[in-house]
């Protein structure tokens, strides 16, 4: 079983956390996520033009690039993480241009070498899959796709085709870190997605608190939290890891327990 598959097969929903590479002490913050109980880690690749991101992650991108973070630095962070944490899945998330700059084969090979399990590219939809997808699949790195409220039944098969690892459901039509969608609509959409795929479905965008994450975890295989963690890193700088660990721990507890509750209620029913 792959690291990603194992993370979604622990008998409880998965907490998926996101931070931006090169923003703050990334190694210490990654360790804090693991210590806090994150099941999957998304490491954001900073980009000058993060079109799909809200203010919190935009600011993290600028802080990271302002410190001179390079693509080589990001792979070094990933490789060192893999050394320290052989079992925790690590996914790179970002935009197309830094991923294809030296060619998709180069990027996929470096990702595989660094022990990266999957790649989420925000601006390569299935229609442009050949720009990166074949290289990732050949290198054994999972191309993780996004589904959104606008992904209708006609499109869904194209989104699922060639994707692996998990399916990331973007719960709101919008940018990261803003409002959360109504739970009823999330539940309905996750059910729709799960009817079409065996991949685990993780839900993100606008999930900030343990209570929100628990609600998501009751209806999906995983909850993704990004902006709330990234804001802590922006706020506390070198002191961030303690804060990141504490928030992650309370998120993990809420998400993991939500699974028991939903299991309990379905057993009762």
């Amino acid at each position: 079983m792959t690291r990603l598959a194992s993370a979604f097969a622990k008998g409880h929903p998965a907490l998926v956390t996101f931070i931006t590479a090169g923003d703050g002490d990334t190694a210490a913050n990654l360790d804090a996520l693991v210590e806090g109980g994150a099941d999957v880690i998304e490491l954001g690749m900073p980009f000058t033009d993060p079109m799909a991101d809200g203010p919190a992650i935009q600011a993290a991108n600028l802080r990271s690039l302002g410190k001179g973070t390079t693509t080589a630095d990001i792979f070094a962070i990933a490789a060192a993480f893999r050394q320290r944490h052989p079992q925790v899945p690590l996914v790179l998330m970002g935009y197309a241009n830094p991923m294809v700059r030296r060619g998709p084969e180069w990027f996929a090979a470096e990702a595989a070498k660094a022990g990266v399990d999957g790649v989420i590219c925000v601006d390569i939809p299935p229609e442009e899959d050949e720009a990166l997808g074949p290289a990732l699949r050949a290198a054994g790195v999972a191309p993780i796709r996004l589904a959104t409220p606008t992904t209708d039944a006609a499109r869904l098969p194209a989104v699922l085709e060639g994707s692996s690892g998990f399916l990331y459901y973007v719960s709101v039509a919008g940018i990261t870190g803003k409002q959360q969608a109504a739970l009823a609509s999330i539940e309905e959409n996750v059910a729709r997605l799960k009817a079409a795929t065996d991949l685990p479905v993780a839900v993100g965008f606008g999930v900030r608190t343990p209570a929100q994450a628990a609600e998501i975890a009751r209806v999906a295989d995983g909850a993704v939290v990004g902006s709330a963690l990234v804001e802590l890193i922006g706020q506390y700088g070198a002191q961030a890891p303690d804060h990141v660990r504490r928030l992650t721990a309370s998120l993990a507890e809420a998400v993991h327990r939500a699974g028991n509750m939903s299991l309990g209620s379905s057993l009762r029913a």
Binding site: A52, D123, L146, T148, T151, V170
Partner: peptide, 20 residues
């Protein structure tokens, strides 16, 4: 038909925008 001018052009957008 896919919006490509040779290797250029295309539809490199977030999934939310794709249906639109």
């Amino acid at each position: 038909e896919r919006g490509h001018f040779g290797q250029f052009g295309g539809r490199y957008v977030a999934e939310t925008l794709m249906p639109l």
